[in-house]
Design a protein around this nucleic acid. Structure first.
Lengths: 226, 226
DNA sequence: CAAATATAATAGTATTACTATTAATTACGC
DNA sequence: GCGTAATTAATAGTAATACTATTATATTTG
């Protein structure tokens, strides 16, 4: 895996930045330290001012790369789904059984461990925590429709539709593949968050694989029924 | 139902306000117009300043009732779960079958129509939309733990634990009742939002009951397995 | 009716989320 | 290699947000 990494580059819709942050030192600084800061202080408390202090550049320079902090979040989340799709495609490349493919996908979605690596200066570990805690804020706004028209959720939708095809292979008559997938994806994020913060809303104890088991069962059961 | 309403009062944890908003005209004005405004402009754009203008009271007066807008959101969400619990208890009062009770609960969770009524000056219609779009923001913050210790999520947790008992009645060996329930509740909210805004992430068409059917199947299937 | 108490209004401040303008740097044609 | 254009960075703002401290006005009650 590490070998492959140096050769890939996750691309992100051009509407998610003003200047491609991978095109300059300042840009990649913005990204990597934004990940650090958002993870550390949460998206609400995160500001371009604070980021500017950390990277020792003025606030206004960051505004040249991203319209605002929402667009930056959108960029990070989109990057995440690009990275997930990459892993999915490689993970299921040599599988013939669609059922096993789906299983693999759920594993991928619910596996939050062993990601100590960095890609393009982005700490995967921290990015995953950001996706879990903050990604829903990227679409739960009054601007969703506008953002959607600009392709801001492309990567996420692509990931889901790729999996929907696999589900259709397992059971062509299954009526709710996308619904099932978004339920699993967002549900899995939630359970991690609840396990850490509101344990009475989940049955997960830390450091076991209940989440993976639960959603794998859910997926297979649902798809095969109906 | 309408008859009953005049006699009940949904109570909310005392830590969710500074002054009980139901105790004064100003207080109930704050609540009812906050619901209008948040529904209209979304939680991010909503401010106490704007609310003050609408109710023709200074911003500072609102701060006497609620520490900040997050606390106000917490109050509304908590009120919502109190109201949901009330409906649940009455809805399943005379049922003997736990399976039917669970079915009724999922119906309640996924039924977003026919709520043109107002209680305590709160438009149920609008409140439901707020819960769908904004409620996750009330816990997806760095302050969750603090808020949780103050009992801010009590009503939600109580609703979930009440249903967890029903699930245990159906299948005492089922290991993940809370996980299943939070998946269904948050998933159902999400599907409504996606149907309106990001339709390719769901399979819901407007004005059908796919959401109810999907999550009812999910619940019954999961609970009976394992 | 005066004192205590509760409530409301005024007038601030620090921070946030930007933007317009100016300064510095780099790229490029001749 | 030098001047001009284009890009990038830094400065210095502004309007709005999220509060808070203080003062004023009612209301209660002994």
């Amino acid at each position: 895996m590490e070998q492959l990494l140096s050769n890939i580059k996750i691309t992100v819709n051009k509407n998610l930045y003003l200047i491609d942050p991978t095109s300059s030192k300042l840009g990649s600084n913005i990204i990597s330290h934004a990940v650090d800061l958002i993870d550390e202080m949460g998206f609400e408390k995160f500001t371009f001012k604070k980021l500017g202090i950390v990277i020792d550049s003025p606030e206004a320079s960051i505004y040249r790369y991203f319209k605002n902090k929402n667009q930056l979040l959108l960029y990070l989340v989109s990057w995440y789904w690009g990275w997930m799709e990459y892993q999915l495609v490689f993970g299921i490349a040599n599988m013939s059984s669609s059922e096993l493919k789906l299983q693999k996908a759920v594993e991928l979605i619910t596996n939050y461990k062993n990601n100590k690596m960095s890609i393009d200066g982005i700490s995967i570990d921290k990015l995953i925590r950001i996706v879990i805690s903050e990604s829903s804020k990227s679409y739960l706004t009054k601007d969703v429709n506008k953002a959607n028209k600009l392709g801001s959720y492309q990567s996420y939708k692509k990931f889901v539709s790729r999996l929907a095809i696999i589900i259709k292979e397992i059971n062509p008559g299954y009526k709710f593949p996308n619904m099932l997938l978004s339920t699993i994806i967002e549900g899995a994020h939630l359970q991690v968050f609840f396990a850490d913060n509101l344990p009475s809303l989940t049955n997960v104890q830390k450091s076991n694989d209940y989440i993976c088991r639960f959603y794998t069962n859910l997926a297979l059961q649902s798809v095969k029924s109906n």
